[in-house]
């Protein structure tokens, strides 16, 4: 894999004093789908907007395909497509005119066949002559995607592509993103929806308070940080975990009716061993189930762990 986007020491302090980004380093591989996760105000949109030229960085460098986005802005920006979070469309224009405008703006020669293909791919062809203001919210978002694709970018930024979008359109959007990736486009998306990242992304970056806390392949991240839990429904409630089992990380739940065993997914399972020891201790159970933590749990624990570290730092 080769790098397509390289971010070094990217820092942004707004005029208000808010530090939205704090020395962020990030490398994006060609052809991957990268999901940037983080709570509101974490710096996701600021990061995207700096790469795209909409916001000026306070410090740091960004290169796209080896081109500096400041010094070689024309060639760098020609490779980037941006679909911002807010719905912003030329409401009195038609989708066709709006998409044609975008292609010209990015310095590409006329290509009616490409515009038709793009509009058809996004199910906008029938609406091409309607005023954008008469279209539904989902359609408007597709117009914005068509505009971002009109100059055939190699890197596409989707800032919260499925926020406020119905389930069907969301599925369509996911399918579209995969098609784009298959055609060689690198995709960087931000999202609130963990299941979206879990479904789509090859790699995941978690950003919080302007710092990238973690960047990892999705599978590795889930394996590394994922926890598994075995829950046993006991035949007889227990008042306390028996002393014989004190070496195990066990906890009682549901007023002593359930015994929980939590372990790292990365470790080899010791469940059979535990079950044998339980039997030896004379504890019987009527049911059991295991579950693996989702990306959402991982995300929450990451962001909270960071909160605690931050609090400790402040106390010192």
């Amino acid at each position: 894999m080769t790098g397509i986007l390289s971010i070094r020491g990217l820092t942004k302090t707004y005029a208000s004093g808010l530090k939205a980004l704090d020395a962020v380093d990030l490398d994006i591989e060609k052809g991957e789908i990268f999901a940037l996760l983080g709570p509101n105000g974490a710096g996701k949109t600021t990061l995207i907007n700096i790469v795209c030229g909409v916001v000026t960085a306070s410090a740091g460098t960004v290169t796209v395909d080896g081109l500096d986005t400041q010094r070689e802005y024309r060639q760098a920006r020609a490779r980037i497509g941006l679909v911002p979070q807010e719905l912003a469309t030329d409401m009195f224009e038609t989708p066709y005119a709006s998409v044609r405008f975008s292609r010209g703006l990015f310095g590409r020669p006329r290509d009616p066949a490409l515009l038709e293909r793009t509009l058809r791919d996004l199910s906008l062809w029938d609406k091409r002559k309607d005023r954008i203001q008469t279209l539904s919210g989902g359609m408007k978002r597709r117009v914005m995607i068509a505009k971002a694709l009109a100059h055939e970018p190699t890197v596409l930024f989707l800032d919260e592509p499925t926020a406020g979008v119905d389930v069907e359109l969301r599925r369509d959007m996911w399918a579209l993103v995969r098609r784009l990736r298959d055609s060689g486009v690198t995709i960087i998306l931000t999202t609130h929806y963990i299941d979206e990242a879990e479904e789509m992304a090859d790699r995941i970056g978690v950003i919080d308070k302007g710092r990238l806390i973690v960047v990892e392949e999705k599978r590795k991240l889930m394996k590394k940080l994922g926890r598994k839990q075995l829950t046993l429904a006991l035949s007889q409630p227990l008042a306390a975990v028996p002393a014989a089992l004190s070496s195990w990380p066990l906890a009682l739940a549901d007023a002593g009716n359930e015994l929980e065993y939590t372990f790292e997914a990365a470790q080899d399972s010791r469940i059979p061993e535990l079950l044998r020891e339980l039997e030896a201790a004379g504890i019987s159970y009527k049911d059991l189930n295991t579950k693996q933590s989702s990306l959402e749990d991982i995300f929450v624990s990451l962001v909270h762990r960071d909160d605690r570290n931050g609090a400790k730092g402040a106390a010192r």
Partner: peptide, 14 residues
């Protein structure tokens, strides 16, 4: 006002 300025700002234009 509408926010569509983002496109001009992100385009390869001087």
């Amino acid at each position: 006002f509408t926010g569509t300025i983002y496109e001009v700002l992100s385009a390869p234009v001087s």
